[in-house]
Design a protein around this nucleic acid. Sequence first.
DNA 1: ACCTTGACATTGG
DNA 2: GCCAATGCCAAGG
Length: 115
Amino acid sequence: MPLSQSKRQQIWQTVRLIPYGKVATYGQIADLAGLPGRARLVGKSLSCVPEGAAVPWFKVLRSDGKIAFPPGSQQAHLQVGLLQEEAIVVVNNRVKLMTFQWQPDLAEMLWKLSR
DNA sequence: ACCTTGACATTGG
DNA sequence: GCCAATGCCAAGG
């Protein structure tokens, strides 16, 4: 278990807020989860998401929109497939954030403040 | 306590 | 856009 239970839960909860058809970056999730500057922890937390859990780990990308896994890897292919199921366009292992990035609304910001 | 390791981010060339 | 250097932070040896 790489992370303390509470932080991991908090990160997973935040990832669950990403709406259908949208994506977010590791840093964005860290900030919204109340853990600014800890984008790497988001990656660690997502690496231990159990199979079939209601956490859309595949919608979290690097700050430039690229998929974090090595291009061509089995995991990268899986992620691309899952993204396409939500009509998110992936080109060269990258998603155009300008088009698909999640813009949290007021309700979500309030959740953040009261987490 | 020291060192290494990441599903990271930012900046500069 | 690609790459390298830095900064970052918690886990595990």
